[in-house]
Design a protein around this nucleic acid. Sequence first.
DNA 1: AGACTTTTTTCGAGCCTCGAAAAAAATAAT
DNA 2: ATTATTTTTTTCGAGGCTCGAAAAAAGTCT
Lengths: 415, 415
Amino acid sequence: MTVGVRHDDLRRRNRAMVLSALRTAGQASRTEIAGLTGLSNSTISAISASMIDEGVLLEVKGGENGLARRGRPQVALTLNPELASVVAVMLTLNHLSATMIDYAGDTVDEEIERLATQTMDREALVAAVVGCVRRLVDRQRGEGRRPSRIALAVQGITSSDSSSMLWSPITPQQNTPFAPALAAAFGVPATVENDCNMIAMALKWRDPVRYRDDFFAIMLSDGIGMGLMTKGKLFSGTHSSGGEFGHMIHVPHGALCRCGRRGCIEAYAGNYAVMRNASGGKEDDPPAADFSQAEMQKLADAARAKDGPERRAFVTAGNAIGFGLGSVFALFDPAPVAIVGPGAHAFDILEGPIREAIAQTSGGAHSGAISFEAEPNEMPLITQGCAMTALTRIDDELVAPGAVTAQTLRGRKVA
Amino acid sequence: MTVGVRHDDLRRRNRAMVLSALRTAGQASRTEIAGLTGLSNSTISAISASMIDEGVLLEVKGGENGLARRGRPQVALTLNPELASVVAVMLTLNHLSATMIDYAGDTVDEEIERLATQTMDREALVAAVVGCVRRLVDRQRGEGRRPSRIALAVQGITSSDSSSMLWSPITPQQNTPFAPALAAAFGVPATVENDCNMIAMALKWRDPVRYRDDFFAIMLSDGIGMGLMTKGKLFSGTHSSGGEFGHMIHVPHGALCRCGRRGCIEAYAGNYAVMRNASGGKEDDPPAADFSQAEMQKLADAARAKDGPERRAFVTAGNAIGFGLGSVFALFDPAPVAIVGPGAHAFDILEGPIREAIAQTSGGAHSGAISFEAEPNEMPLITQGCAMTALTRIDDELVAPGAVTAQTLRGRKVA
DNA sequence: AGACTTTTTTCGAGCCTCGAAAAAAATAAT
DNA sequence: ATTATTTTTTTCGAGGCTCGAAAAAAGTCT
């Protein structure tokens, strides 16, 4: 049983709505906000007055648009970038970055690091992440900035309470509790997120026309992941991040996957699988380590040039992805797909086989109508998704309930 | 952008909460309701007073429980069965039933009919459904009862706006708009629902301990369907009912399915597939018509008796279901599974192969921990699910907003 | 019969949203 | 230059809703 709606919830919700409207629109006048939220002008006036008072919102002075209309001019409101900041951390294979983003969503500073994730033990991994964030935070302390929240995106499976990385291809370590470590080190809430989910979040922010309520973000790299937006909300499993597209079964008892099982989609479409198939390897050959982008590029060029094992490997990969999507469409119904990550460089060779496979599944009727888009550069998306996730959490958990003002937050830690 | 929370929404929501609490608990005192909803005693007192006044709720007179405690005795409230009623219609292969259920959820009357669904054209099918409901409604008009809502459950794919049956194995007709026809014939809102979704709804009502927030209901019959509860809410596709488990791909380019495609789970685990495999048919053999329960029973007995083609057919079926569940678990995470429908009679032979297959998938780690339960008799579940769906819609759309009182509803049509 | 206990109702306080009206701040017209 | 017009924003009072405290109600226990 959900708990009843109390009276103060009402104000909290409507404040959250105003914040959300401004976060999407960037800036908007009181009247526009009233239109967006469906609340009355008087209510918006009251809410925005108190939020300006708290230092959450700013009136945009002077920045008038050229066309001067008759009547009292609208005065735009924005989120106060100085109210708070968050750190978005991205941990991928041999790569670590921490980005500080202000409350309005603009990047302030960044710290990047290479590291050998596959050979580090759990403590070293956690220490590296904490250290990277530490350097960023220390550098920004001089500017009077302190993050209010930290979000870490990792490849692999995360727990549904966003506290731990349960499993990841970038390390043999399991159940790594990054969130508590970060929370303890910096005295602020921290979460661990799945990279593909963050990509989906970012796509929704970047291109809300194409990626609105329902879409799939497929990440092609060594592994294969999926971020899934359904009905405007990020889909997640009941215990974990879920959406483990790469480990749906493509061929029962089929090719050996990096996860130790057989027949996963990844075992046909992951980088290592394409490489294995192109080089005449057998399905039982153990998955090799990660390949450079240059190697994959060479393979793709060979596939483009002429028929041969390389092209057949990409066809196999595309088919695996297509049949997998077909099964996903059977469950969720067809929706636009974004192909993200290094594998998107080869999207021109993959698209045909993907569509061919989908056409043989229950989503097939619409296979022509499904929109695909390729975006090879996944890293900025992951970081942006992380930032937005953290910022909207601050909106909902701190700012909307009124727990936070510029005074309580500036330079001080938040419970 | 969702619309802001207005002031009157507050009352509406809290009324809905009280209704939902009573619908789940059957009866409860004001104090108990306050505990369940988290609202204060005074609020519950006010809400229940006005609802009693409207004729929505009844005080249970006299019916005291044996153990008399000290203090003023609690007086239980219930939903007034006379406030309204709904008709739950179930259309399956060659079978049609309409059941009238009162506002408290108890069955009042029923009308059953056999018909040849596969050879009827669209108009005849719609007419049959309307006719069956008509007989029930006419008979009950004498008692002063008029339904406030009609819900129809069908096998197959329904539109996400619940207006039409998009596709169903019980008829060659497509896009049959049952809901508008029923709505026009009886002047009340009508919806078309997927049978497996209704089963999931019913399971949640029947056994809320086992089937709470997350579970899967797999229906085994000629076709294979799935109803899916995630986070306490019925899962549905974005355009259709979704959850087309039976048409996820088990083996690419595999056995011929009733849907005309190849390799669907159904093409290995549907009744016709088991029959085809057991009788030495080939994968390309066109799917035969529906089989009697007796025939399937004989097959199962043969499989139990000794190794042979029959047993192998059931193993194949179980494996297909298991691998499919594995893929579903990869997306949604593992959760309890209910095996419903005629196929559940053979659950004893299927369970082993199902678990064996799951063990080879990413949900495999927990394959032993996943709870399975078999319930061969699906029809009462479908009807109950339909009734509950219709009743909760009345709660939310008519009673909670206060649009309905015993006066406005009794014997008159509702807009 | 009176004390005690628990449930339910009553009452006033405190918020919140809304509509209407007023105020503010600009442009257009005279 | 001044007035009229237009549009945005604020102010103000009305009406609802929930809540806590106190009162009333309806029993059991001694």
